[in-house]
């Protein structure tokens, strides 16, 4: 029953994919120009018959994907790097910003969760800071840090800190009273209680916060790199837009989606690892 369901879903996915490809093909297919005069633009670009601008056909797209994926790590100067290198830059920024955020948010969330006083005292700050678009911090970051690469890491930090902080605090505050009482009657020390009782009890909630943070960080890095420039998948998208290569833009969009999915799956697996059934 379950198996046939996933098989049927898989078949349906393929059918939808083929249908969309067909639509795409129909929308972008243009009859071959036969000896027509070159447009002024085409003359300027020095190309004669090959279509360079505009929407690519699925076949052209496929070629581009193959070309990029067959050599993902080449580096031919600042404006021509392989897609693997660009993604690695973005992932490194997201990773370091996210890690810094975790280092701040999880211990702080623990404190807030354990102390109702701190919870109340810090709540207004969190409520005000949380809804600020992370990109709004960019000018301030550029001014104070004076380094564009570090600024983008800061932006990742500031956007991933909130979900982790809030979820950790919530998870820690809602650890079941019974478990804490067990720890109390066993005269368990503070650290042992934190690591052996509260942490595993709150882990699923904390992990959910981390998963949300990672999702947001991956959304934000593209925009941040568009602003900051230099390297990264966001810069790649912007650069290819300036090159008017929609094929490459679409390819980058695809890669952003695939990497985002991989990150989410990874955190999903981690989440499953720490989840317990009551």
């Amino acid at each position: 029953m379950d198996k046939s369901m996933s098989l049927r879903a898989g078949v349906l996915s393929v059918v939808i994919f083929l249908f969309l490809l067909g639509l795409w093909q129909a929308a972008t297919h243009t009859p071959e120009k036969t000896g027509g005069a070159l447009t002024e633009y085409e003359q300027l670009m020095g190309k004669s018959t090959k279509k360079t601008a505009g929407m690519p056909t699925p076949a052209q797209m496929g070629e581009t994907v193959k070309k990029h994926l067959s050599d993902p790590f080449y580096d031919k100067g600042p404006n021509d790097k392989g897609i693997g290198i660009q993604l690695a830059y973005s992932l490194a920024r997201v990773g370091s910003g996210f890690l810094l955020a975790a280092l701040v948010a999880i211990p702080l969330g623990f404190l807030i969760g354990m102390s109702p006083l701190l919870y109340r005292a810090l709540d207004p700050f969190i409520q005000v800071l949380k809804p600020i678009s992370p990109l709004a911090w960019m000018p301030l970051a550029l001014y104070t840090i004076k380094d564009s690469a570090t600024s983008s890491i800061f932006v990742i930090f500031i956007c991933s800190v909130w979900p982790m902080l809030i979820n950790t605090a919530y998870g820690v505050a809602s650890v079941r009273r019974d478990w804490l009482n067990v720890a109390r009657t066993l005269e368990v020390g503070v650290l042992r209680k934190a690591f052996r009782v509260i942490l595993p009890a709150a882990a699923p909630t904390i992990m959910t916060g981390m998963r949300i943070s990672m999702g947001i960080a991956w959304l934000v890095i593209v925009a941040a790199e568009m602003l900051v420039g230099g390297t990264g998948i966001g810069y790649f998208v912007w650069n290819e837009w300036n090159n008017l290569s929609l094929t490459n833009v679409i390819f980058a969009i695809l890669m952003i989606g695939v990497v985002g999915m991989a990150l989410d799956l990874m955190f999903g697996a981690l989440q499953k690892l720490v989840t317990y059934v009551e």
Binding site: D178, N181, V182, R184, T185, E187, P200, A201, A203, Y276
Partner: peptide, 19 residues
């Protein structure tokens, strides 16, 4: 004056740690 290992408690809802 406080909880102690000298008094063991069996809680109403078993209070086992599910993990």
């Amino acid at each position: 004056s406080g909880p102690s290992l000298e008094r063991g408690v069996v809680f109403q809802g078993h209070a086992l740690m599910p993990w």
